[in-house]
Write a protein that binds this DNA or RNA. Structure first.
Length: 867
RNA sequence: GGGCUCGUGGUCUAGGGGUUAUGACGUCUCCUUGACAUGGAGGAGGUCGCCGGUUCAAAUCCGGCCGAGCCCACCA
């Protein structure tokens, strides 16, 4: 077998890893812990390319750390909370949250989500993920929700939680409040309606442009710009609202854009966030024109009970009929929409639980400075977000399938009583409060609100480090080693986690943050199922293997988005095949674990020293999460130094030095690849090394160390490689087979160090006779002198250009002889300068007995060949 | 509108003041050699987005412009 068959081989080792619990996190181990705050995969079923690459990148870290002696904490985990599941369940069963008792509704959601878990576990398995099932968690489980609730109770008792009656983003379809971070903007074109407002007591009118005439019922004031000369006289006067006939004042406010619409703004309580700013500024009384169902309230008069959209259409029709609608024009707008169900979001005043956030801006920014961000520039995203925050965090949602807010409220006085920590996990809609009645004697009613899912998610470092479960472990593990995530949720997951770690533990949650980008469609645009350009990774894995897909993943540098490139996957498969065949070649030569012998040849020292350099650079790149660079260095070495050159040199050797070198370099190389391509690495290890090594899996073996640092051998080796490559190239040019024998090869020049490698040369290029000499009975003819700019520039500065021009005018042969006799003196810019040998590099042609021979020039040396 | 990232052969990409600009995929020529033809040796193919500036020297640093993507804000 000379081809690597990914499908059967990958399955084989996946089974071995699973059966052998290779990736077990050992709580009792004294080894240093490396903990990964793995993103729990959302329970939605289908695996997309972004998952496949993102989780592969995290796996690279886990495997690398494991091989470096860490007790790696890398949990298998799933996120099973929140409204996306609810939305799907409601669609599937054609219900809303009001149609079923809470318990039954919850059960449907839970069953729906759980139905995906096995499939998702399988996905991780076929990707070769090294997550540990022994530290499995699911965010909807009571053991996880308990942590969310305890952390809430602590914050509640610290006075950081309050119930507020502020306007919040409200999704009428989900019937719940939303955080700013949950609101999306969809592009849309709407009608901008120009409506007449009569000036009270006169026949004058002004027109107001609005996209939302249905909100006229809560119109409180009309604002104009203070510099607007035409309207200034109206400030302070009353206008009459159309349809409702209410009197509203005209005010002047600099935030009004005189160029938009009519330059007059009607301010309603409450339409959007801009309205809210004015409402706060002018202390306007809040009125609720739209209710939680997205329907108009009694305030809307004849439109009561209509949906917002119906009311808008009806209001426009009425305005038109009564001649108050001046005109309409198209207006592009961004409609705020619920990120889960895409229904338009309203801005409503509904009592909600808030967590104090604005007071912690400084602390969060300071904590961000304490952590290492990879890449560094992603920290700016967090800073921008924190600096732009204007509201505290709305913690509560009026949903069902999520962690309940562990609070009871007094029916009479509204006093809130939180659960005790010991009670958690608790469901106030079913369980009794910690005290039988309120201090005022009133009855305590269980809160039906649940938490924003980010409240659960942002507690993952607390859950992972055994907070409130095992204080010893928490002490050892908190803060965690690293958080991997994508850049889109910096403002949510990263931000909330940092915030809560500060509030709960006065600490950073993790030391490192690794931010990866998105995988885009091959044309660089985002993948969307609505566009139909989503790429399914499963067929790719089936065709090329998981290692090939992982190879693609490691070529995606951190922080930036990447268009999918199938050719990288193809390259990955080829690399698997190359590695597999290196094993096939070398494996049979190994009979034991060899010790380093005394008599290493130059070529051995060369590859060992180069290998050591690569170990150092690859290790450095792993430490800074630069997988693309790590892979490039490792791959380039393995393919183009080890395979193309060293293996060619040792093909005919069976000595201990060759065995030792090949064994050491190949094993170490495979280890460097192991975090990226775990299957092929394990396959080579098991087939060719396991018999001589003690580790039961390459993934439990030690990361390679440097062996030798011999710069002299490296430069000799590079020359050797160049000489051999040159001769092979020469053969290729003459269409000769690479193993064609040559009568005589003469290497001439500063190359006596190649004497160490005579055998390597003759064996590799198949030369019957080899001469290595410093000079030969040949004449050299200098055909040109090349300026060495890197030396000329610093030495002669501004004159360098003229010097180069002057030298180019000289006859090369004569100039070369002048150079040998002390230098060339040139008049440049009125000055006389002398250019010596170091500044010019002669290019020579060789003549043997006055006749040009077949020569190849390699750097400063020449190779003469007699076929 | 703001922030971030990026414009390098046909496509994708590395590099990031100093000889001839890296590699992959594609393409063309040649080579079955005892690990691999999913291989090897070579070739063709580039004004490093545009315009200025700094410098002896700019693909690289600085400024401006043009273009792309992501994130954020958002107009009644």
């Amino acid at each position: 077998m000379s081809q690597y068959e990914s499908a059967s081989i990958e399955r084989r080792w996946q089974k071995m890893w699973k059966d052998g619990s290779i990736y077990h996190f050992d709580k009792d181990s004294d080894a240093p812990i490396f903990s990964i705050d793995n993103p729990p995969r959302y329970a939605s079923g289908s695996l997309h390319l972004g998952h496949a690459t993102g989780y592969s990148m995290i796996d690279f870290v886990a495997r690398y750390r494991r091989m470096n002696g860490y007790n790696v904490f890398f949990p298998l985990c799933f996120d099973v909370n929140g409204t996306p599941v609810e939305v799907k369940v409601e669609k599937k069963h054609n219900i809303t949250k009001l149609d079923l008792p809470r318990n039954e509704y919850r059960k449907l959601c839970s069953e729906y989500a759980d139905s995906f878990i096995d499939e998702m576990k399988h996905h991780f398995e076929i990707l070769g993920e090294s997550m540990d099932p022994s530290i499995y968690y699911q965010t909807d489980a009571p053991y996880y929700r308990r942590i969310t609730q305890i952390s809430f109770v602590k914050l509640f008792n610290k006075g950081l939680v309050y119930k507020g009656n502020f306007p919040v983003n409200w999704c009428p379809r989900c019937m719940t409040a939303l955080a700013d971070a949950e609101v999306e903007y969809d592009k849309n074109v709407t009608k901008l309606n120009y409506i007449k407002f009569m000036v009270d007591g006169t026949d004058d009118h002004i027109s107001v442009a609005t996209t939302r005439p249905e909100l006229l019922c809560t119109c409180k004031v009309v604002a104009v710009h203070p510099d607007d000369k035409e309207k200034r006289h109206l400030v302070g006067k009353d206008l009459v609202t159309p349809l409702y006939g209410r009197k509203v004042k005209v005010i002047a406010d600099p935030k009004v854009d005189p160029a938009f619409g009519t330059g007059n703004v009607m301010i309603c309580t409450i339409g959007d966030k801009d309205d809210l700013e004015w409402v706060m500024k002018y202390k306007l009384e809040m009125e609720k024109g739209i209710d939680e169902f997205g329907k108009m309230t009694a305030l809307a008069g004849k439109y009561e009970g209509m949906t917002v959209k119906e009311a808008r259409e009806a209001a426009i029709a009425d305005l038109r009929e009564s001649g108050l609608l001046v005109r309409q024009e198209d207006s592009p707008q961004n409609v705020s929409a619920c990120w889960r169900c895409h229904a338009p979001v309203e801005f409503l005043q509904v009592p909600q639980w808030f967590l104090k956030t604005l007071d912690f801006k400084k602390q969060v920014l300071a904590r961000a400075e304490e952590m290492n961000w990879y890449p560094e520039f992603m920290k700016i995203r967090l800073q921008d977000w924190v600096n732009s925050l204007e509201w505290d965090w709305v913690l509560s949602r009026q949903r069902i399938f999520a962690t309940p807010v562990p609070v009871w409220e007094c029916e009479d006085c509204g006093h809130a009583v939180a659960a005790t920590e010991e009670m958690c996990y608790v469901d106030p809609t079913e369980d009794s409060p910690p005290i039988s009645k309120c201090e005022c004697g009133g009855k305590l009613i269980g809160c039906t609100d649940v938490f924003d899912t980010w409240m659960d998610s942002s507690g993952s470092p607390l859950y992972n480090t055994f907070w409130e479960r095992d204080s010893e472990m928490f002490k050892r593990m908190f803060p965690m080693s690293m958080r991997p995530q994508s850049h889109d949720i910096i403002r949510t997951w990263a931000f909330y986690t940092i915030l809560r770690s500060e509030q709960i533990a006065s600490s950073i949650p993790w030391k490192d943050v690794m931010i990866h980008g998105f995988i885009m469609a091959p044309d660089g645009t985002p993948m969307h199922s609505s566009v139909g350009n989503v790429i399914d990774p499963i067929p790719i894995i089936n065709e090329y293997g998981a290692d090939a897909l992982r190879y693609y993943a490691c070529n995606c540098s951190m922080g930036i988005d990447h268009a999918f490139r199938e050719k990288d996957v193809i390259r990955g498969r080829k690399l698997c095949n190359k590695l597999f065949n290196l094993g096939q070649f070398a494996g049979p030569r190994f009979d034991r674990r060899p010790e380093m012998p005394e008599n290493l040849r130059t070529s051995d020292k060369w590859i060992l020293s180069r290998y050591s350099d690569v170990v150092t650079s690859v290790t450095g790149h792993f430490e800074s999460y630069q997988f693309d660079k790590a892979m490039r260095d490792a791959e380039n070495f393995i393919w183009h130094e080890l395979a193309d050159h060293y293996v060619e040199m040792v093909k005919s050797r069976r000595d201990d030095a060759a065995k030792y070198t090949l064994y050491t370099v190949l094993l170490g190389s495979v280890k460097m690849i192991a975090p990226f391509m775990p299957h092929i690495a394990e396959d080579i290890y098991q087939n060719h090394f396991a018999a001589h090594e003690k580790d039961r899996s390459i993934h439990l073996s030690k990361w390679p160390a440097t062996v030798l640092n011999d710069k002299k051998a490296e430069s000799t080796g590079d020359l050797l490689k160049d000489v051999i490559a040159a001769v092979r190239g020469w053969k290729s040019e003459r269409k000769m087979p690479l193993n064609a024998e040559l009568n005589m090869v003469e290497i001439i020049g500063d190359c006596l160090m190649l004497n160490d490698a005579r055998v390597d040369i003759t064996e590799t290029i198949k030369a019957k006779n080899l001469e290595i000499v410093e000079t030969a009975d040949i004449t050299e003819e200098v055909i040109s002198l090349k300026p060495v700019h890197s030396k000329l520039g610093p030495a002669f500065k501004g004159l360098a250009k003229m010097i180069v021009a002057e030298i180019a005018k000289l006859d090369p042969a004569k100039a070369a002889s002048m150079l040998r006799n002390g230098g060339i003196t040139i008049e440049a810019d009125g000055q006389s300068v002398t250019v010596t040998e170091e500044f010019l590099e002669p290019e020579k042609r060789l003549m043997l007995n006055g006749k040009q021979v077949e020569t190849i020039q390699v750097g400063g040396i020449l190779i003469a060949i007699e076929p």
